[in-house]
Design a protein around this nucleic acid. Structure first.
Lengths: 221, 221
DNA sequence: ACTGGATTCAAACAAGTGTTTTATACATGT
DNA sequence: ACATGTATAAAACACTTGTTTGAATCCAGT
């Protein structure tokens, strides 16, 4: 099994450029899914290797160990998250704060529902719940930038400085609703059986409407 | 260590009534805290026994094993949760739906902040995130009753039947905010360093104001 | 054909897990 | 005092964990 395709066509490609494209990527892919759905500790290297049809020693060979594999998984997660943040920024460029907030919610939910990147947010949520050593990097490169953008949108709705304590509270209220749809089986009971694009759109409209009204109400406090 | 006090004063108390009051309860207490903060799998019986100053075999002796201990911890958690639900019901009896929802939020947050029962809700959240065998019992005895009450309050605010799909969505929006304050270190960053009674009251006011406005906005959809 | 580096494989390892076992101390009932 | 059932203690058990080892296999370059 696992026909090796290491630079089989590229005539004189430098061998070091593509160190591997087969089992290494399979491990990376399956590990990402397993880590996201069950958590780092609950997943065994034997689970991953079996799922990826790889030998038990493959993880240590390609990534130096379970921790190294997890670090690599987190790396691609961080990069995709940054891309999503950029998409959120573009979607709200030159629009009103209300539309910016709604766009952020919609882009997020659409990514979760339609793309194959749901595991990324699940993984991020696990890192927030019980952080590993990589949490500081995640906070700085992913969470802070996105929260900064949403904070500015919320402050725009409230017509108050971003440093206002109520802005942080509203941030929590909005983020909480987005996170709730990820971690729990409750999400699957809301949007049966899988979160379709239509479900995501309906959810986005609900959370946006609910949250904007909430933020406005807090603003008059 | 661990001076045994098994009915040492009660002259002729039936020996079977108080099978143990010392190490068994210490195990129960410490296990509850550890299970809530780290999860069932991450906590070892050696951790619990060391924390409770008990012998390694004590858990198997008193509870028949790690699983039996966890079941017993869940039992007391369920009972306390039911008491909290009752308190929420009493706090909102004969009041408007708005006040009922606010009372539910306030009672919940007050319990989390002031009493020593924070671990209970953390444990419940873990059960929701990745359920064990006991999840069905929890759903039926704890989650369903409380959600039914909050659903009726929300439907009251919206002036629509409780079966309306938007009611379920609003339920999610409210619950998500409450849950967000439990599991994550984010809570400790919002309310530094420990959640005081004043913090809980401020948070309760925020979530109530935010949520009631959100529900009202959804109602006009 | 063959050499050399990269990759895969089966087997074993050391450490940590929950549990069981066996023995000992204790308070109580007769 | 003695026997009895309860509780604690230390050691060992069987099992799973991540990791390491050393041989086997593959493929490109000569």
């Amino acid at each position: 099994m696992s026909s090796r395709r290491t630079h089989v066509v590229t005539a004189t490609a430098t061998p070091a450029d593509t160190p591997d494209l087969e089992t290494r990527d399979r491990l990376l892919h399956e590990a990402a899914l397993l880590f996201a759905t069950h958590g780092f500790d609950s997943v065994t290297v034997r689970d991953i290797c079996q799922q990826a049809h790889a030998n038990l020693a493959a993880i240590n060979y390609h990534f130096g160990g379970k921790a190294g594999l997890y670090a690599e998984v987190l790396n691609v997660a961080i990069q995709t998250m940054q891309a999503t943040t950029e998409e959120i920024r573009k979607a709200g460029a030159g629009r009103s704060p209300d539309q910016q907030l709604e766009a952020a919610i919609r882009v997020f939910l659409t990514r979760v529902a339609t793309t194959k990147d749901k595991w990324i947010h699940q993984l991020m949520l696990r890192e927030v719940a019980n952080p590993t050593a990589a949490f500081d990097a995640i906070l700085k490169r992913v969470l802070e930038p996105r929260m900064a953008y949403m904070r500015s949108a919320i402050a725009g709705i409230m017509r108050c400085p971003v440093s206002d304590r109520r802005v942080a509270l509203c941030m929590m209220s909005v983020q909480a609703q987005l996170h709730a749809l990820l971690n729990s089986p409750l999400a699957e009971r809301l949007a049966s059986p899988r979160l379709t694009a239509a479900d995501a759109d309906r959810l986005a409209r609900h959370i946006a409407c609910f949250s904007i009204a909430g933020v406005r109400a807090i603003a008059t406090t």
